[in-house]
Write a protein that binds this DNA or RNA. Structure first.
Lengths: 117, 117
DNA sequence: GAAGTATATTCCCATATGGGAATACGTCAA
DNA sequence: TTGACGTATTCCCATATGGGAATATACTTC
């Protein structure tokens, strides 16, 4: 089985650096494909393909303006990621109760282990 | 060019659901491979492979205890993700100044566009 | 309709993948 | 050492990938 499709969810979609760069660029405002392509330094078709993925997972929206297509941020799809990752915040912020217990438990096990080598 | 390696960074590593499940399981405490495998409902080698990826990107650590290897969370690697995604929070939280300006700008462009069809 | 601009899709390819199966490695017990 | 257990690695494979090149589609102006 290969890796899950990039379009299977936002986690997979934002794993690609260029797609993250696109989202960052869209923070300022809507942008046409050509602008994004030149900013990223990749081809127009390449940019369109990345935008296609972001669209499939609902991280951007498009609207037609004349002969251009303006892509805009649809950030709601990032919220689940933020929440999932946020669930680990307590573990990278030290000085937290559960972390203390955790460490104590480790030390207990280490004792029944031996010590230095 | 294929997709970037799953071991290239935390973004790629956590794109895989089973690996996220592993990290979630490790919140409670360190666990041996066998436990994780049975919880995930996948094989031991499969579990080891996922753990290898997580280890390569620094999201878990191992320590040998007897003949078992206890894997534990190393959540610091998730912090950059949290920060990157957090940079979009203002865009999924409506009622924000910049978002208001954004919308106004859109409406201006829409006017010079025409109207309904 | 024809020409021009902006974007999307298709075709091609080397490569990494996740799972299964088989096997190697490391530790413990006797 | 032998046997048993827990874990890691290797081999195999169908599949999705991101980029490049070529082409199709859409909109605008003439």
């Amino acid at each position: 089985m290969p890796r899950a499709a990039t379009t299977s969810d936002a986690f997979n979609a934002i794993a690609e650096p260029q797609r993250r760069a696109i989202l960052t660029l869209l923070k300022a405002r809507e942008r046409p494909v050509g602008y994004l392509a030149s900013e990223l330094g990749i081809t127009q078709p390449g940019t369109s393909k990345h935008l296609r993925v972001l669209r499939d997972v609902g991280l951007v929206r498009v609207r037609q303006v004349g002969q251009r297509r303006l892509y805009g941020l649809e950030a709601q799809g990032l919220q689940p990621i933020h929440e999932w990752v946020g669930g680990f915040e307590q573990f990278w912020n030290e000085s937290f109760d559960r972390l203390n217990e955790y460490v104590k438990e480790l030390q207990r096990e280490e004792q029944s282990d031996g010590g230095d080598g």
